[in-house]
Amino acid sequence: MPSHSASEHRVPSSIYAVVQPQQPTMAMDASSVYEQQQEGRVEEVFAVINDNGDLLAEVLGRLDGRSLAAAGCVCRVWAAVSRRESVWEAVCGRHVEGGAAAGAGARPVVAALGGYRRLYRLCLGPAADRLGAAARLSLSLSLSLFSIDCYERGLGRERGHPRPASLLFLDHNNPVDVS
């Protein structure tokens, strides 16, 4: 039954008329408020993980490097969390011998050389791609390679060099010619 007819009928002709609010405009307001509440509620319910950045960081730190980089494209909150060094440290920790605990002492060195995200991007990621995700790499070797890249970058900046190339041998798309 259309809402305006309810107020015109003197005697309620159906059960709908009885439960109808006296003023149709109020009913409309009420329902739209209700809908807004519902929408707000649903949004709140589903994006709940975005309310807790630390929780999200724990989950994202358990991704592999590629998935973590992709996760950075989801939204602003995810982009911010996926740039956290602690998250990349967790990812890197799973690729080195002795796990994350063994690497804790290397934190200042990694930070000085450009951070864990870069360490993963340049050394651990490509090496893991070649050797398989289950391979455990030597942290000290990775750091040596990482420092070479860092040095080369510094040199490149001074002399206007193109991008550093020493670590390209790690990339499986660029097999090293050893002949």
Partner: peptide, 15 residues
Amino acid sequence: SVEEVREFLNIECDF
């Protein structure tokens, strides 16, 4: 995929 994650968690792409 990124799109699927957004859909799964009902996250809006706010970039």
